[in-house]
Design a protein around this nucleic acid. Structure first.
Lengths: 223, 223
DNA sequence: TAGATTGTTAATCGATTAACAATC
DNA sequence: TAGATTGTTAATCGATTAACAATC
């Protein structure tokens, strides 16, 4: 029992990991064996100490003077995120956004595999989108249980989001990647991760407004 | 000069505003005149005090016992986010995701108006996606300046992201909504807001892994 | 009035940053 | 060795939460 207590990385730390991973894979392609926190921080305009803390949170140890072994870092992050193993997912709502996600080839690198899509639109049911079949929504519960699906990707109209999510969590699905603008209310224990375009756009809008106001006041002063 | 100093809301606050706005519009449709921070908090599993702080940060004042006037809240948030005014944007990369964003009708409610798309793919150039024309990328600088476009939406392959962003900021574009997985490095003053799918998926993956491990240990104990 | 809700002021919490000894 | 980089410990910063008087 001399092992260190495994510190669970904070949410901000987890969110930075994919960015590190991306760079590390680049470095590996360039046959770089070592990388320092200084270098990583430089590339992303972060503080070296923050990078070290992030890596330390996953239990990775570096070598003074040399830094970290690139291959080890990649392995540790992949392991930590579970991106070595494939996670099967159902996508619900085969509209514009849903189709785009089905067609996104990058998910393979994250271990995410969308194996079927579902919709209520008869014109979509039975078709294939990027070679993924679209099933009627009624078939989801049965298929989810039989195929041991735990993750649902929600890309349907806001109006249907909550009701559909309620249905999903009655099946084997216990985690939802929510691309709708709806804040889902679900039983405790259900994981919901929201991709919040409106929140992102709000930040952007604020920044733009602020910048605009600054420019205005600047011009006023100059005039 | 007895006016209160206008406190700029924090980033987390700004990110919560669209969620409030959504609920407030619902309440308005139901002809609710007042709403309390308690009610809003309840609906989103937040603390009432946090809601009050968020609203206070925008300079909104409520009425003890009654709460806040729904219409006033909506107006204040819309005003604060600048979503009353239309922001014109160019979209660069008319692939799956780009097309999905062009087709997303919800942006109108955020004052966002995608007026043209750009691509380097000859098979896309000249076509229309949801009635938006796709132009060759070379035409962007001239058009951006002439149409006074300040916002670019980046939905192209990662490999082209940085170079294209570098080009964009040479035009009238000073803000980028970045949907690529690349962390863009751009001159100071340029606004970049990233929609980070990888980060979001990382959080989801972690939660799933944690839950899985908990279940495993639970089963072990029970066995 | 009584009581629900607001806004203010202070306390807590957690993430980031700083300082620096330890290491190879 | 000298020096770059690590990991630890402490300080700072900012957001959230708590407590409570003010208000209608």
């Amino acid at each position: 029992m001399t092992e260190k207590a495994p510190i669970t990385p904070s949410l901000p730390t987890v969110r930075r990991l994919p960015t590190y991973l991306r760079l590390l894979k680049e470095l590996q392609d360039e046959n770089q064996q070592y990388v320092s926190s200084t270098y990583i921080a430089d590339r992303f305009q972060l503080e070296p100490i923050q990078v070290r803390k992030d890596l330390a949170a996953m239990g990775i140890v570096g070598q003074p003077r040399l830094g970290f072994v690139v291959a080890d870092l990649i392995a540790a992050i992949m392991q930590f995120l579970g991106w070595n193993n494939t996670t099967k997912a159902f996508l619900i709502g085969a509209g514009n956004l849903g189709s785009a996600l089905i067609g996104y080839s990058g998910f393979a690198g994250y271990g995410l595999n969308i194996i079927a899509a579902f919709d209520v639109d008869n014109s979509k049911i039975g078709t294939r989108i990027h070679n993924i079949e679209v099933f009627p929504l009624e078939k989801l519960p049965d298929l989810a249980v039989r195929l041991h699906i735990h993750l649902g990707i929600l890309t349907l109209p806001a109006a249907a989001a909550q009701a559909t999510a309620d249905m999903l969590v009655q099946t084997s699905i216990t985690a939802i990647w929510n691309f709708t603008p709806v804040k889902l209310i679900l039983p405790a224990g259900v994981i919901v991760e929201k991709v919040d375009l409106a929140a992102s756009l709000a930040v952007l809008s604020c920044s733009l407004k602020e910048k605009f106001l600054l420019n205005m006041s600047g011009e006023a002063e100059n005039g």
